[in-house]
């Protein structure tokens, strides 16, 4: 046996692909690692996570308690499915609400905070590209939101224990939650890159979140009676179709409304659809529509990507 064979270096075992990708993501973008280190250090993250889980568990306990108090037979499988659906819907709804209002707080100070801390110029003179800074900030916020969502999974799994929740409902809820976090996260980054102060950026980010979650439903509520008066007695199918599409668009722009509508469509035996359905108009025609979760995801990721691009451009620009 030759000495060459004996002394041939043994290649170290390669880490598994997923682990390697996460590691590369963390080490290639130093901002993510720095932000996560800062975020997870100390009591703040632990307290927030605990409060999040406590709030959700309290809510689930309340719902289950109310059901157990009113139901005559808690061992009935049909009624268990109903409560399973209610628990699942309540947890997802509350998570959506929390994501809408926690994510902007995580990103509203991303860039403006660097300006306030007088570290922005230090970063700008390094070789770190603007996109890496912006994506790093967004990535770390999204990872933290992911931790919150994962922490709530055991509560969601209670619904599976009771039954009544289909896998596609779970899938849609996860995708909607991630898309919502992405939209409100990028909105926070966008306002943060525009504003010099975090206070201003936070106000605008929450303004955006409020406008989307509460403002749009109010607009829809205001539109309904107006349209009712306009269409009373008439049989204008074109106007009816336009109205339905406009309402559909407004629903798609609001993740909470989109989630509720999607759930209604899935639960309703008339439609029971995941992607596509038709609505009959007052005449003989019916119009095709897609389930609101799809355009909602497109809206969240589309607008989010646009806000992200503008943010990168703003950060990249030298002062004029």
């Amino acid at each position: 046996m030759s000495t060459e064979t004996l002394s041939a270096p043994v290649a170290p075992p390669k880490p598994r692909r997923a682990a390697r990708t996460v590691r590369e993501m963390l080490t290639r973008n130093p901002v993510i690692l720095k932000e996560l280190r800062g975020r997870m250090r100390g009591m703040r993250a632990f307290v927030l996570l605990t409060l999040h889980v406590m709030l959700l568990s309290g809510f689930v306990t309340l719902i289950y308690g109310a059901y157990a108090a009113t139901s005559t037979n808690v061992y009935n499988s049909v009624s268990n499915q109903v409560v399973g659906k209610i628990v699942f819907g309540a947890v997802v709804g509350l998570e959506l609400l929390l994501v809408c209002f926690i994510t902007p707080a995580l990103t509203a100070g991303a860039i403006s905070g660097e300006r306030e801390k007088q570290t922005f110029d230090l970063l700008r003179t390094t070789l770190l590209p603007a996109y890496a800074l912006v994506l790093g900030k967004l990535g770390s916020a999204m990872l933290f939101v992911l931790i919150l969502l994962v922490a709530a999974l055991p509560l969601q799994s209670l619904a599976f224990l009771l039954g009544g929740v289909a896998p596609e409902e779970f899938f849609i809820s996860v995708v909607l939650l991630v898309a919502t976090a992405f939209l409100f996260g990028t909105a926070g980054i966008f306002f943060s890159s525009l504003m010099r102060r975090t206070l201003g950026s936070t106000v605008l980010s929450y303004g955006f979140a409020l406008l989307d979650t509460l403002g749009l439903p109010l607009v829809m509520l205001a539109l309904l009676p107006v349209v009712g008066i306009l269409f009373s007695g008439s049989r204008n199918e074109f106007a009816e179709a336009v109205f339905i599409y406009v309402m559909g668009l407004l629903i798609a722009c609001n993740p909470i409304a989109a989630a509720i509508t999607t759930e209604i469509l899935l639960s309703d035996p008339t439609y029971h659809t995941l992607f596509y359905f038709t609505i009959p108009l007052s005449g003989s025609f019916s119009i095709p529509l897609i389930s609101p979760w799809l355009p909602c995801i497109l809206f969240c990721f589309g607008l989010g990507a646009l806000l992200l691009l503008v943010s990168i451009r703003v950060v990249n620009h030298a002062e004029r």
Binding site: K34, R37, G38, R41, G42, K117, Q118, T119, D121, L122, T125
Partner: peptide, 15 residues
């Protein structure tokens, strides 16, 4: 090619 230190600069206190 450069290393820059501004007149007023911050440091990350949580590091």
């Amino acid at each position: 090619a450069i290393g820059y230190m501004p007149d007023f600069f911050g440091v990350y206190d949580d590091m």
